[in-house]
Design a protein around this nucleic acid. Sequence first.
DNA 1: CATTAGCACTCAGACCGGCCGAGTGCCATC
DNA 2: GATGGCACTCGGCCGGTCTGAGTGCTAATG
Lengths: 339, 339
Amino acid sequence: MSEDRRLEVLRAIVEDYVHTREPVGSRVLVERHGLKVSPATIRNDMAALEEGGYITQPHTSAGRIPTDKGYRLFVDRLSGIKPLSPAERRAIQAFLDEAVDLDDVVDRSVRLLAQLTHQVAVVQYPSLRRSALRHLEMVPLSATRLLIVIITETGRVEQRMLEVADGIPEHVLGELRARLNATVAGRCLADLTEPLDQVAKAFAVGDQEFVTQVVRAVEDTLAETTEERIVMAGTANLARAGTDFAHSIRPVLEALEEQVVLLRLLTEMAEDSAGVTVRIGHENQHIGLAETSIVATSYGADGQSVARIGSLGPTRMDYAGTIASVRAVARYLSRILAG
Amino acid sequence: MSEDRRLEVLRAIVEDYVHTREPVGSRVLVERHGLKVSPATIRNDMAALEEGGYITQPHTSAGRIPTDKGYRLFVDRLSGIKPLSPAERRAIQAFLDEAVDLDDVVDRSVRLLAQLTHQVAVVQYPSLRRSALRHLEMVPLSATRLLIVIITETGRVEQRMLEVADGIPEHVLGELRARLNATVAGRCLADLTEPLDQVAKAFAVGDQEFVTQVVRAVEDTLAETTEERIVMAGTANLARAGTDFAHSIRPVLEALEEQVVLLRLLTEMAEDSAGVTVRIGHENQHIGLAETSIVATSYGADGQSVARIGSLGPTRMDYAGTIASVRAVARYLSRILAG
DNA sequence: CATTAGCACTCAGACCGGCCGAGTGCCATC
DNA sequence: GATGGCACTCGGCCGGTCTGAGTGCTAATG
């Protein structure tokens, strides 16, 4: 009972099942995959695979389907890469190149990925926390209201209103603006807490309170709000013809509405690896997503990862194709942000 | 065969069907609604109603269900108002009052409405075109790049980058800023095209080209991009237990992803009436939404309508309750934006 | 010792016929 | 016009049968 063949059988089962949506039996397996052994042999292998927890049979007299563990092995060791056709690549590039601003780029990316994978695509907005800053501006709107505008290298613009109870010391603004921009340009928040504190100290004692307020507001804005924004497309794909989900797609939709959940997942996956990562079924640690897999990777200008992009679908998905699509879109997206 | 009773029968059918999800027959109708007549009489009325196209029977030996036309009549003439309980009102207000900024208000509103109606809630972002402006700022980022920031009375902040090939004439900025703000404050785009043109003429001929560029950019930003933004919540409600849709929810999800479709609908409905409007089934003129109804109304500070809020669900919905919820949320939302 | 052929066994799903009951439409009657 | 009575329709349920795919086991084979 060769180990190699057993893995080959697993691969065949996964591929067949992904393709046909039906439990696959020993006979069709040898027929469709040109295996040089008899069904009986395959059955022995299958028994072993089931023993190992890689496959299971939904009913006594049915074929086998892969378990999460089976998919995991498949993804890790058995799945090849399915390169995109040059035409597809060109289409991706052309479509993304037409984008006019950051919102448009993100919007196009997510739609594109949904269409390529026929699944739910998810794009996290470029994180402020990890984006390099281009410029920082302060605009006094009234005696006590200051508008702070932050512009990142990726083209994202973020603003925050600051109420200054004691009034805005107009004379400080010019110098503060200059110093802040000198400090900030080209760096991201992670590198800034220390330097920003320095800025405050450079001012006269009487003005320090105001300066500190501004600095605090900038830091808050970078850290807090906007790491959280996520854009999604292709939810309709969940309701595809061959109703992929055992029960209802409701829990899946619910999970998707909980952006917090998605963000946690994406972040965790980012920690796992720099490349494309895959989470399968229960690995997501979320009931609603127990029957779904997520394929995600990071993107960002200059090879630095500022946010994540991913595709979510039933565990029975075309992993090779999805991985290829996610990677491709991430790559072009990064390129455009850099350009 | 009294006309009044016939309408009463229709109302009973709608209410029962909405409640039980099952075709309703003549017997249960008299039982559950305490009608003082016999089932046979009801049957005659039903025959007439069917003749008139208000109800239909899915199978020969089944009870009746309302048609779109039946729902329409129900909504227009038969449906009472189902006022929210004081507790609900308080909950709405409390929940919305906690919001910290415009995004948060909109986000909370849409979630709240989804939860109240158990349906899909939709909120259109306050339209820039119809929002009164509070302030307008220009920030030169480099010799040729000008950042324009627009702040509305509703708290929305919009920005646009302007490339000025010939360089920015710094000396003009101060005066331009002053003049623009004087012109703009408290007015909305609709009232501004004329006045803005005037501003340009006030400047020296050499500077007019630059000023015109800025004015044009402001107008573009107000008009163009952002009328289009829509936020949604509660899509999971479409997949509720008693699977509401005849076939699949896929076409519905697809329609919802086409924000253009939604925007068109909301806009059309805004034209229909100032109050709460209802579109039922085929009235939506969209295949994917043939089995859904939309209840929408306008909201905005100071009674002026700046955008729309609505709820979308199966035609078999609790119209009275939905209308009440939509109206209530719209009202509180308006109040908060005004405050 | 892996592979294979043969065989008995299991069981989901399709198919069938009968039955039931809800609901209707119609007609004669009050 | 409202009603009671009645024949009729038909979808859905129930129980039973049959079929075929697929399995696991065992014994034979190279």
